[in-house]
Every structure is written in C-alpha cells, then in structure tokens.
Write a protein that binds this DNA or RNA. Structure first.
Lengths: 226, 226
DNA sequence: ACCACATCACTAGTATACAAGTTCTATTAT
DNA sequence: ATAATAGAACTTGTATACTAGTGATGTGGT
C-alpha cells in the first residue's frame, strides 16, 4: 500500500480514510484482499482506533466488508453495486446539470472552464492520474455550485465502486474523450439548454459500458461471482 | 431521551445509532442541544467507543455536529439541507418509481399492497407513529424491489433532515392523505404507467411545502438562522 | 467594580488493554 | 495414516486511560 503525507489539520481518522480510499480505487489494495486493522495502524503510524473508524465508514458504502471476529476485506467488484452506483450517479447528475443549465453566475462557469483547461494540460503531458482527479473535481464542482455539495459527498461513497472499475479501464483504454465530453457539458451550460446538458452528461457517464466483458475476463479474481 | 430495548445480534454501535436516530427524528433530542458522549454511554449502558462511532456516522449526514475538544450537538434544522435532502429524494424516487412502473413481479406488488392495507389499519386506530414508519417502509420497499436498496440506505442519512421536519408537522397537520397518495402510486405501478407514477410520487413528496413558515414561527429555536 | 490570570471541569481524539470469537496448526490418540 | 482435539495466533468489539485543547469559574490584584 502507498502511504501519503498527512495534511495540516487532518485528524488521524480522516487521514486513514483518505489513504484507504486512494489505495482501494487505485487497486493498490486488491479486491478481495484482507485488511488488518493492526497492520494498517502501524503502517500509518496510528493506533487501531482511528483506522477502525475509517474502515467502519468505508463499510457503509460496501467497499469494505467487516466480519466481526473474522476479519475485514476489500470487497470484490460487484456488478450489481456498480450498476446501482451508476444509476444513482446518472440520475443525480442529470438533475444537477439541468439545474446548472438554468443559469449560473459567470465566475462559477469560469471555474469550470479553468478545470477543463487544466485537464487539457495534463492530458498533453500524459498524466492520467491527475486527469482523473480533475474529472472528479469537475463533477464535484457542478454539485457545489448548484448547492448540492452534501449530495455529492454522500454519493461519493458509491462512486468508489465506479472509480475502481475506471482504474481497470485506464489500463487498457485511453481517456482522450473525457475533455470533449466536458466541453459539451460546458457548452450546454453557456447556452442554458437543459436538454442538451442532460444528453451530454448521459453520454459522458455511459461511455464505459462497452468493455465490461473484456475487463471481467482479464481480471476474474477481482470480481464477485453471483 | 428514550432508550429502547437492544435487539438480537445488534452490536453496541448499531444499537446506539438506532436509538440516536429515533430520538433525533422524534425531537426527544432537541435541535441545538448538546450530546455528551460520556452521558450517552452510561444511559445506553455502553462505553464511549461504540457511542462515539455512532455519532461519527451521524455527523457524516450533518444531523449531528462534532466540534473537536468542544462538544457534539444535535444540529439545528437547516433549510438548505432540508431542501437538498428533498431534491435528492425527489430525484431518486422519481427515477425509481419509473423503474417500478416498467413491470414488477406480482408478489412484489402485493407486498406493497399489504403495506398500504396496514397503513389504513393504523390510521383508523390513530397510531400516527406506526403510520409514519409504514410510510418509510413503503418507500424503502420500492427501492428494494427495484434493486436499489443501497441507494436507499445512503439516502436515508439525508432523509433524517426531512423526517425531523415531518415530526414537527404531525404535531399540527393530519396525515390522512398519505394513504391516498400511496394508492395512486400503486395504481401507476399496476397500470405500468411511468408518467403517472412520477407525477404521483412528486405530489406525495411535495405536499409539505405549504406549512414551512408556520412551523418556523412556532419553533424558531429549532432552526439555524442563515 | 472590574480586569487578568490561574485553575478546574469538561470536551473529543487517540492509545492501549482486555474480551469474545474464529481459524489454523500441531500434537496426540486411535 | 488419519481423525480429533487442544491451543496458539489471529480477528473485531468494547472498555478504559491518557492527551491536548476549550471554556467557565472563581480568585486575587488593581
């Protein structure tokens, strides 16, 4: 597992949570693998308490499974959960983009544009990981500027299932289209056209459907078999 | 605070969480009031650890606010959060009812009908609290039978803001309409008419808008002033 | 009377010790 | 050799002790 630096006012529990999320999404912690609270604690230089609190939180989103007196595990990828996460995200993002297309302050739109420009920069420099972060940031910003930040925070626990799959995909497929998608969304906002916005968002969020089987066959051990 | 019995396999943390939720929604723990981890622990017959874990979870949904080294508080009712919860719920329930209206197994429909019949029973016997539980159960079931149970679980943390307000309302307004609303929703499912379903759900979930100001003026100390 | 400051009681965050249960292993009996 | 059993080494859940920080209170000095 990769352990990153601890930020300023970040308390132990938040630190553990952040590191765990990063490692799970990036598959440094493999689906199905065991997590030892004790081991984790010493790796992070913490005691069990904050680590445990982080694990409990993750278990709420089903990305970690805790079996009392048996052990804790990174959950294998569950297509039903991915599907459900996808449904939730699509439904909410559609609604939010419609809101955004009903009119936004200029500075908020410019914030989004700035993000997309940065994306182009990282794409040209082939920094895929940064690009993905900005992708997430873009969507988060859409929720924030429409006063829906809490919804995003709740949703993000389910999006992890989604993101983990995306990490698998980036190992095979390239990500150029992302920027075009975001440009389309921005256009819709500028034109104040909710229908166009919703369509663009839908396109953006459903592109991945294609390579399901390919990935599943390539990494069968990562998946829950139902 | 009212302390209820501890169920079978329910571990301490879940017990504390359940009791806290019940008391917050029923306003036994008043908005703005202080929660002492120590006090709560001894009331529930637990130590700080499980109680604390429950409080952390509630703080994720903003229904409890934790200020390190200062104290934990039941959050006052925040109209922005209520609005956001309402948006989330309305958006997701619309999508789910459309799914349900695309066809369900007969037994699942009958499960819903059974629920509504029970509602009628409790309404006739004036057991409002049971009625409200069944209302929630009805919506939860809609999510479950469309394979969206995890979404409901995540959402339920935000719905608390909503439910707390509903408790205030039941002190003034009666609840007869609930059953009619649910009958309409059931009709739409039987007729496999998504548009009708969405409309019925929307009506059901937006009825409360009316008495905002009345409640706010009656219990100003319960509200966050923005 | 009022302000400054020390002290005390409280808070949440963390570390650690212990309890209760599971699993694997090794030893012993057949 | 094999099966059963005892036990060691883990697991998470919980209780408790300790730390650092906050706020209120009361006291002493002006």
């Amino acid at each position: 597992m990769k352990v990153s630096e601890r930020y300023g006012r970040e308390i132990g529990r938040e630190y553990a949570l952040r590191v765990l999320k990063e490692n799970i999404v990036m598959l440094e912690l493999e689906p199905g693998s065991r997590i030892s609270e004790n081991e984790l604690a010493s790796e992070l230089g913490l005691s069990r308490t904050p680590v445990r609190e982080a694990l409990i939180e993750l278990s709420k989103g089903q990305i970690v499974e805790i079996y009392p007196q048996k052990g804790s595990f990174v959950s294998r990828i569950d297509w039903n959960l991915v599907e459900e996460a996808q449904f939730m995200r699509l439904t909410l993002e559609r609604a939010v983009i419609r809101l955004a297309c009903q009119g936004l302050e200029e500075e908020k739109i410019q914030g989004l544009e700035k993000n997309v420009k940065l994306q182009r920069f990282y794409l040209e420099n082939n920094e895929v990981s940064e690009l993905l972060k900005l992708d997430n940031q873009f969507h988060k910003e859409l929720f924030t500027i429409t006063n829906k930040s809490h919804i995003y925070r709740l949703m993000s626990n389910m999006i992890l299932h989604f993101d983990r799959l995306r990490t698998l995909r980036t190992k095979t497929v390239d990500q150029m289209y992302v920027i075009d998608d975001h440009m389309n969304i921005l256009d819709a906002i500028r034109m104040k056209n909710p229908d166009k916005g919703e369509k663009a968002m839908e396109q953006h969020l459903t592109k991945h459907e294609i390579d399901k089987e390919i990935i599943h066959k390539k990494y069968p051990q990562y998946f829950k078999d139902n």
